[in-house]
Design a protein around this nucleic acid. Sequence first.
DNA 1: AGCTACTCCTGGTAGC
DNA 2: TGCTACCAGGAGTAGC
Length: 282
Amino acid sequence: MPELPEVETTARLLRPDLIGRRIAAVQIEWQRTVGKGGPDRFRRSVRGAEIQSISRRGKYLLFELVRGVDAAGWLVGHLRMSGRMQVRPSIKEPSRWCRVAMTLDNGCVFEFIDVRKFGRLEYARSPEDVLPKLGPEPIDPEFTAAWFSAALQGRKRAIKPLLLDQSFIAGLGNIYVDEALFETRIHPQHPSHRVSASKATALHAAIVRTLAEAIEREGSSFDAFYRTPQGQPGTYQDQFQVYGRHGKPCRRCGKPVKRIVVGQRGTHVCLNCQRKPRPKRS
DNA sequence: AGCTACTCCTGGTAGC
DNA sequence: TGCTACCAGGAGTAGC
């Protein structure tokens, strides 16, 4: 499922094909994909606009639109489980599972493809109109070990659901959380306020390093869903230590990796390396 | 504040 | 081989 590295890769690889292009025509194949505004407003707002910039906030993709020198709003996209974006040369028919197709002024087609229909590509006057409250970007300088350690102390919650909470940190998902917790030997149900300062510092470093390396490898592709806009799989899945490795030996101690459920999420752990702390009695 | 359950979806797969 | 039943899962929402 696309997380920060996959979304960042999508933004980077879309830019050369989309920046400066005008959207000549809009085809909406699944109405819910364009969100609450509805298809009519989407078409009206987007047709004729030019894409001036593409950026990322958390797992959201932001396309800035202009008409001449005037601001013309934004497209705000989220890939959710199975979403993908690509630009194809002029085509006869849309790709399978294409939910929104936008024909560009050079004849190419910008497609939003999404098997499970959870993804969104919405029009908004301003990103704030549709973006929820999001925590800091884990690859920005503002995300420091000191801030992270203090923030963990300030919450009383199992560490994994907290890291998945986008209002706490923006961009982490199931894969990179499982990997970072394994690397630092922290059990996913460890209470956040009981993570020591040294463990918090190590976890901060693991998050930053994991995301940076995954971006470098253009994300992770372990099923049929995530591909770069060029249709290529990412390669970070080759680096997975625990994710998707249940039943296989832990790369550190050799004991089998387990799959448990934490906060309704499939969770991959080595219970030998990641010990659950004993509950404290008051 | 934090938890649990439910919803949205469909391809893949386990079980028969 | 073909059928059915179930599952994954990000995030929004509701209820406790």
